[in-house]
């Protein structure tokens, strides 16, 4: 089992000097994931916070091979690179024992919405890649527009809360289950607040042959509007309220990785965040009830699925 001390002494593949916000959750995720394999990694990164903040021309924070992709095609780009690697190996231009890992990366905008088609195609074709979605629940890079990952009732710049609306009216899309429906070898949901779990999942994803997908919750102080020092606490609350359950699906078999001893009410998750502030007005209590009901139903369903 990896120890933090050993991880800390490994080489940084993502170096400081990037322009991500105070208290951003993205570097916490990639600090762990990029250490989960010793092999060289090639990244195709869709447009989003991570891409924009780490590569402000003429600078780059990547100490490794990294490629920019448009919003919609990070998965296709990395699929192409992987196909090229296979072809060159067959022709003998890359030694047979040379191992390279292929990583597609996108935010929730690039994965849930714009790049879903490309991602679906890539995993269906069975490329040996890993795709990581860091889900911060909005298009945070362009000013916090709603995405299909934005939860019910959240105020976003294109679903603002006001006298006529309690924020976003629709519930969030369950992308992890969509990927499970592709019947690929490995799909998991993780959180940087549980680093061992995230590390193990990333390691498994890299080692498994064929496509693997990780959906990782990412805190965003800018769009969620909470005190930036409380990020990791908030991640833990997401697990304890079952808003973001940790589970993995290996060859169709569900396994829940974290069960809270006592399931907390979603209020604890909603309260610290400014994007949900309006829900605590009297006229919006129905949204709170609906939110809680949806979380309960999803958790129950997940528990049932894990029985098989």
């Amino acid at each position: 089992m990896a120890k933090l001390k050993d991880l800390a002494s490994m080489e940084d593949r993502l170096v400081p000097g990037h322009g991500m916000c105070l208290g951003c959750g993205i570097p916490l995720i990639f600090k762990i994931i990029l250490r989960a394999t010793e092999d060289p990694i090639i990244i195709a990164n869709a447009t989003g916070c991570l891409e924009v903040c780490t590569t402000i021309f003429p600078r780059t924070s990547w100490n490794m091979t990294w490629m920019h992709s448009a919003f919609e095609n990070a998965a296709s780009t990395i699929a192409g690179v992987e196909a090229m690697y296979k072809a060159l190996k067959m022709k003998g231009r890359i030694p047979q024992d040379k191992k390279i890992k292929f990583l597609g990366v996108g935010g929730d905008g690039a994965t849930y919405d714009i790049g879903l088609q490309a991602l679906s195609g890539t995993v269906e074709r069975g490329h040996d890649i890993v795709y990581i979605c860091y889900d911060n629940n909005a298009y945070a890079n362009t000013g916090g527009q709603r995405s299909s990952a934005t939860p019910l009732g959240a105020s976003a710049s294109t679903s603002p809360a006001g006298t006529q609306s309690p924020g976003k009216l629709q519930r969030r899309k369950d992308l992890t289950k969509i990927l499970v429906a592709h019947n690929i070898p490995y799909v998991a949901q993780a959180s940087p607040g549980r680093w061992k779990d995230l590390y193990n999942k990333a390691k498994k994803a890299f080692e498994i042959e064929g496509p693997a997908f990780l959906n990782v919750l990412c805190v965003c102080p800018t769009e969620w509007k909470y005190d930036e020092s409380q990020g990791v606490r908030l991640l833990q609350t997401a697990l304890d309220t079952c808003v973001w359950p940790l589970y993995e699906v290996e060859n169709g078999k569900y396994k829940i990785n974290y069960k809270p001893k006592e399931k907390k009410p979603v209020l604890e998750w909603l309260k610290p965040q400014g994007r949900f502030r309006h829900l605590f007005k009297e006229e919006n209590t129905w949204v709170l009830e609906k939110f809680q009901k949806q979380v309960d139903e999803d958790w129950e369903e997940l528990n049932k699925l894990a029985l098989y």
């Binding site: 170096v15 400081p16 000097g17 990037h18 322009g19 402000i56 600078r59 924070s61 100490n63 490794m64």
Partner: peptide, 9 residues
């Protein structure tokens, strides 16, 4: 690679 270290955040 990694030249953003010059950018002192």
């Amino acid at each position: 690679a990694g030249n953003s270290v010059k950018n002192l955040t």
